[in-house]
Design a protein around this nucleic acid. Structure first.
Lengths: 210, 210
DNA sequence: GCTGCTTAGTAACAAATGTTACACTTCTTA
DNA sequence: TAAGAAGTGTAACATTTGTTACTAAGCAGC
C-alpha cells in the first residue's frame, strides 16, 4: 500500500501526511462492477483512488440514472467528502468501472489535516474544483449537445479512462449512462459506424477516430 | 457594512473573523443586471453576498448560455473561490438579478483563515457542498425533466429567490436561461396559463400555484 | 445438433422540441 | 400622433428523440 501511495501521492502530500495516511487509512481492493457508494449512504470516510476507474452516477426518485463523470487514480470523491464532514447522505452512486484500489480515510482526521498540512488544504480545494468543473462539463454536454455528439464524447472519454481503444459494453449499458433508450443508441452507433468513426461487434465497440 | 455583516454572518463566523473581514474586505453595491464576474475572469478575491440575488450562468464557445443557479444572501461563489486560489480562469458569468450588496475578500487571506478559523473551514467546505448539490439539481433538471416541467420549476424557483409572486421578465430572457427558443417558451407559458398555474401579462408573469 | 437467452438491427410511428414566418399589441420617442 | 421597436401569439413545418414491435444473429448449456 505504501508503495502505491508513494507512487501517486508523493508529489502531492508531504512525508508526514503520507505517514499519517498510512497509519489511519484502510486499504481496499474493488472488483469490476463492485459498488463503492450507494445513493443515501452516510460516509464514514473518504476514498482516495490509488488505481483503476470509478464511475459516478446520479439517480432520481424514479430510479432513472445518468452518468456524472469518472474518477481516475489520484482522484477523490468530493461528494463523499461532503457527506463525511456534514454527516449527511450521499447523493450519488459510485461503481468500479474496472478493478480498482482505494484507501479509506477516516472522517475524524479530515479537519485536523486541513489545519496541519497545506498540501492537504490544496488537495481538498483542488478536488472540489476539479469536481465542479467536471459537473459543468456534464451540464454543457446535457444542455448544448445532441445525442449523437454526446454518444461520441462518451465513447472517446471512456476509452481514455479505460486506456483502451475498444470498449467492452452493450448498447443497453450505454443507454443507461446517457439516460436514453437502447434503440436510440443502436441507431446512433450505426450512424457513427457509417461515418467510419467506430466499428461495431457484439459486446464490443472499436473506436477508430479520436 | 459591519451591521449587514453581523446580520447574516454573526451566527456563521466568530467575532475575530468578522473583525478581520471588516478590516480587509471591500464593500460593493451592485445594480440590477450589473456584471460581477465574466467568463474567463481571473478573480482577485471572493465575493460574500450580503443581500440581493446573483444569477450564475454557464456559456459555451458558441456563446450559447444556460442558467446554473442563483446565489442568495449568505452565499459565496465557489467557482470564484476556485479561480482565486488556483489563479485560474473562471468558467462562469455572474450577474446581479436585483440590486445586491457584496463584500470582496482578498485572495491572500483565504488560506490563512482556513488554518486559523474552524468556522471559516466549515463555511468553505459547506459552500462547496451546497454548490455541488446545486449543480446536481441542475443536472437532474436537464437530464430528467421535459421543457414544460423545467419552465415551471424555473418560474417558481425564481419567484422564491426574488421573494415575489410575480416576475418581471420577458419570454426571450427565459428562453436564454433555459437555452431554448422564445417560441417554445411562449407556447409552454400559454399552456401553463391554460392549466391555471400562471397568468401572463406584458413583461410580467404572475404565479398562481406553487 | 437443438433450445433458450442476450444482444443487436431496423421499420414505423409518436411525441417533444426547434425553426420560420407573420400578425398583432403595447410601449417609446421623435 | 406617427413611426418604430419590443414583446407576444400562433400556425405550419422540420428535426430530434422516444416507443413499440418484430426479426435475426451470437452465444451458452445441454
Amino acid at each position: 500500500m505504501r508503495e502505491k501511495l508513494d507512487n501517486y501521492f508523493s508529489f502531492v502530500f508531504e512525508k508526514e501526511l503520507l505517514d499519517e495516511i498510512e497509519q489511519v487509512g484502510t486499504y481496499k481492493k474493488l472488483r469490476e462492477n463492485e459498488l463503492l457508494v450507494d445513493l443515501g449512504d452516510k460516509m464514514k470516510g473518504v476514498p482516495l483512488l490509488l488505481d483503476g476507474a470509478i464511475k459516478i452516477v446520479r439517480e432520481d426518485k424514479k430510479g432513472e440514472e445518468i452518468l456524472l463523470y469518472f474518477l481516475e487514480r489520484g482522484d477523490t470523491c468530493a461528494s463523499s467528502f461532503a457527506s463525511a464532514i456534514t454527516n449527511g447522505k450521499c447523493g450519488i452512486r459510485a461503481i468500479a468501472e474496472k478493478d480498482s484500489e482505494i484507501i479509506f480515510l477516516p472522517t475524524e482526521k479530515l479537519d485536523d489535516w486541513l489545519v496541519k498540512y497545506k498540501t492537504w488544504r490544496n488537495f481538498v480545494i483542488d478536488s472540489y474544483n476539479v469536481r465542479l468543473n467536471e459537473m459543468m462539463e456534464t451540464i454543457d454536454t446535457l444542455a448544448f449537445m445532441r445525442m449523437d455528439e454526446r454518444l461520441y464524447k462518451y465513447l472517446t472519454d471512456k476509452a481514455q479512462i479505460m486506456r483502451e481503444t475498444s470498449l467492452n459494453t452493450t448498447h443497453q449499458e450505454i443507454a443507461y449512462d446517457l439516460h436514453t433508450s437502447r434503440v436510440v443508441i443502436s441507431r446512433l452507433l450505426k450512424q457513427l459506424e457509417n461515418e467510419g468513426k467506430i466499428t461495431l461487434h457484439r459486446n464490443k465497440i472499436e473506436i477508430l477516430e479520436f
